[in-house]
């Protein structure tokens, strides 16, 4: 629809809406540009507060220092592996839990939901989790980055909501008449119709894996298995909220200056891959293929 052919009310709406969106865009673009530019600026200029939106005293020091630190590349590799495998496990389990819960004729549905939701509020904490991991022999094991977080109840709930709202009962009835089993319906009808929510699940879980560090810090002592976030935290002392800097000698200061140089380049290095994930995922936000024969 061309702008000129819109009604007056619509024109007003479009102008106002686009203006507000533009404003939001500017406001959120600022921190991004600031970080990006700082990563390409001389730390002295950053300290003097001269970097706003564009790099000042262009410098590749940040990236040079970063690439010099070899564990980063190992971290990247590990994170990619954890993310791919982990997300695949996540999405599969989530669908397996969400679909039955979305069916009104699923006996015991209410109980199951409570069973799942209860775990969002009550947990045992770190100590028994440690015991569990230990008893399962998952220390320094690849799967410790996948299994403990294999299912997020929050994701199950939003997926269930989507199934409930978007898979009409009529489809199911029609499929039943054709002798379709539940599993077949799930894989051949429900999933293709739900590409948006599956895409969202992929995104949420993938980001979760990419940003994960806590379990790794606790359970992975082998430096060759560390994910990216842990490696970055290792370099950046500032990212730790601790007042323990005040060692008496050059160490504190040297550490700080290294941290200064690396601060922004590490953020870009860790955030860029994730940021690029979204446009990719967004392609799936189209309604699934309508299986023509089942319509109506």
């Amino acid at each position: 629809m061309r702008f000129g052919s819109l009604s007056k009310g619509d024109k007003v709406y479009t102008v106002v809406s686009n203006t507000l969106l533009f404003f939001l865009l500017l406001v959120t673009l600022y921190p991004l540009l600031n970080v990006l530019s700082s990563s390409f600026s001389d730390p002295k200029a950053i300290g003097a507060g001269r970097v706003a939106i564009f790099p000042v005293d262009f410098s590749l020091d940040g990236y040079r220092e970063l690439s010099r630190y070899t564990p980063i590349w190992v971290g990247y590799k590990n994170s990619i592996m954890y993310t791919i495998v982990g997300t695949f496990v996540n999405v599969t389990l989530t669908i397996m839990a969400a679909y039955p819960l979305s069916r009104k004729d699923f006996r015991g549905r209410g109980l199951f939901i409570v069973f799942f939701a209860f775990t969002m509020y009550f947990s045992g904490g770190m100590i028994p989790s440690y015991m569990l991991i230990r008893n399962l022999n998952l220390f320094n094991n690849f799967w410790v980055m996948v299994l403990p977080g294999a299912l997020s109840v929050y994701n199950v709930i939003i997926t269930r909501t989507y199934f409930q709202s978007n898979i009409p009962d009529s489809f199911l009835e029609a499929a039943r008449l054709d002798g379709c089993t539940d599993v077949k319906f799930l894989t051949q009808v429900a999933i293709p119709l739900s590409t948006p929510i599956i895409a969202v699940n992929f995104l949420f879980y993938a980001v979760g894996h990419w940003n994960a560090f806590f379990d790794a810090m606790l359970y992975l002592s082998d430096t060759k298995m560390k994910p990216l976030q842990v490696v970055l935290r290792d370099i950046l002392i500032e990212s730790r909220i601790s007042a323990d800097f005040n060692f008496d000698s050059k160490y504190a200061e040297a550490k700080q200056s290294i941290a200064e140089i690396l601060k922004y380049s590490t953020i870009v290095a860790s955030t860029l891959p994730v940021m690029l994930m979204y446009p990719f995922v967004q392609k799936y936000f189209i309604k699934g293929i309508m299986l023509g024969g089942l319509k109506g």
Binding site: L93, D105, F112, F115, F116, S123, P128, P148, L151, L186
Partner: peptide, 30 residues
Amino acid sequence: DVDRGRQLYLLMMLPVAYILIFKYQPMYGA
């Protein structure tokens, strides 16, 4: 209903097992 929905229960088994092992078992820590 249980019989009719048996495939659905089968689907649930894995997630339920996960929740039991990783969420309910450690709850004694509370």
